[in-house]
Design a protein around this nucleic acid. Structure first.
Lengths: 224, 224
DNA sequence: ACAAAAGTGTTAAGAATACACCCATGT
DNA sequence: ACATGGGTGTATTCTTAACACTTTTGT
């Protein structure tokens, strides 16, 4: 190569999902600087020289949202966007990850970025193309849970079948038939029945099942 | 951010597939410099400041393999790798694209990189982790053609059903049943029968079909 | 006439879907 | 006793998979 190489700006952004009150929520921060100062945005930041994108992700989540990356039960690369006009410095390339977690509370007051989880159905206008990125991540997630066990990332190790079905329904955006769902999920052998029951109201207690694996298994055939 | 930002090295690599003699081939170049001097590698290079990754891809393919990007009938982002020790300068991030083309001849003597297509079944030891990247791209391609019409990227606008079936068989790595294949492919209405016939030997001529679209259509259900 | 690929339907097995009632508990 | 969600089976439809012979051409 004959020209002098100067690297473009490289950033990392994160789409972190969590179920709260049976709704899919996404982690957002408030921008303290232009462009889009005051708007909500995906947590993200610069990737430094010599730093892997996952290391940058870790650092950025920690510093901007006070969320420890090892609280993420599932993480995967989503896509790399050629972000336009992200930054006064000009064109930037952004590697975006998608993560799933559970029972994470972020403290709005903890950092200047005021991190918070927002239901994906109630997003305000977001900075940059982050709205579109979140939609893309939702599609990927819906597709992913239909042929892998990735749903475990949103749930505790032990669940009732109804909890599991509700998680699928929220992620996939449609209702599922209870009997068919149970047949399929049990046939896949992803769950092991425990001897415990969950009593959470004036009704018959539900048998609790444990996920056999908390790591990604693929090539399943869960839901069409 | 309080620290001085210095961007990591960003590179772009390409996995370009083409069918030659009913075999899946991939475009490779010979490295003229260390590391891996003399080894074959995927065509790739640095992404400059202010340049989109697709623009970089275009420039790199042009200069290293003399292949014009608009000869690619299909292109999509494959994955972004945190390449280790790619370069003496240290850690680099590499955005990898997958492309499909047809009837492209590259001239080994044209550039110092000596571009050539090599059957994926006959790859020598490659530089870096490029062997693994090609395998990943093959998996993606096999998956992609099973739920989209992406196969058009490897074929001319007009094909016989046997040509089409052979392309699927090569990409998916297994034989398909002729009658079932024809039923399914015709039911999807991706093809329009022409009135032409192909006579290429001492046997009954085959009816030629035309692809209705040369752009990606998704959510099909072609092959399991 | 023969070799070689094109073209064509049916059957059986398996998968997906639709659907309604009894059970165990808390109040 | 009643309200609430937990739990269960079958019949039907649709999809998939397996499978072999006739047709048309060139030599």
């Amino acid at each position: 190569m004959e020209y002098v190489y100067e690297a473009p700006v490289l950033t990392v952004d994160a789409v972190i999902f969590q179920l709260i009150d049976n709704q899919l929520n996404v982690l957002l921060v408030k921008r303290s600087r232009d462009p889009f100062r005051g708007s909500l945005a995906l947590p993200g930041g610069y990737n430094s020289k010599g730093e892997t994108t996952l290391a940058a992700l870790d650092r950025i989540l920690q510093s901007k949202t006070d969320l420890d990356k090892n609280k993420l039960r599932f993480i995967e690369q989503l896509y790399t966007f050629d972000t336009v006009a992200r930054d006064p410095r000009g064109h930037a390339v952004s590697v975006v990850y998608m993560g799933l977690c559970l029972n994470v509370k972020v403290n709005v007051a903890k950092t200047t970025e005021q991190p918070r989880f927002v239901p994906v159905t109630k997003l305000p206008e977001l900075a940059f193309d982050h709205q579109a990125i979140i939609e893309y991540a939702q599609e990927r997630l819906a597709s992913k849970v239909s042929y892998t066990n990735a749903i475990f990332g949103l749930l505790p190790k032990e669940v009732t079948l109804t909890q599991l079905q509700q998680a699928y329904e929220v992620v996939m955006g449609r209702k599922l038939d209870k009997r068919n769902f149970r047949k399929r999920i049990l046939a896949l052998n992803l769950l092991k029945p425990t001897t415990k029951y969950s009593s959470d109201g004036a009704h018959r207690p539900a048998l609790i099942y444990a996920f056999r694996k908390q790591s990604l298994e693929t090539s399943l055939k869960l839901i069409d």
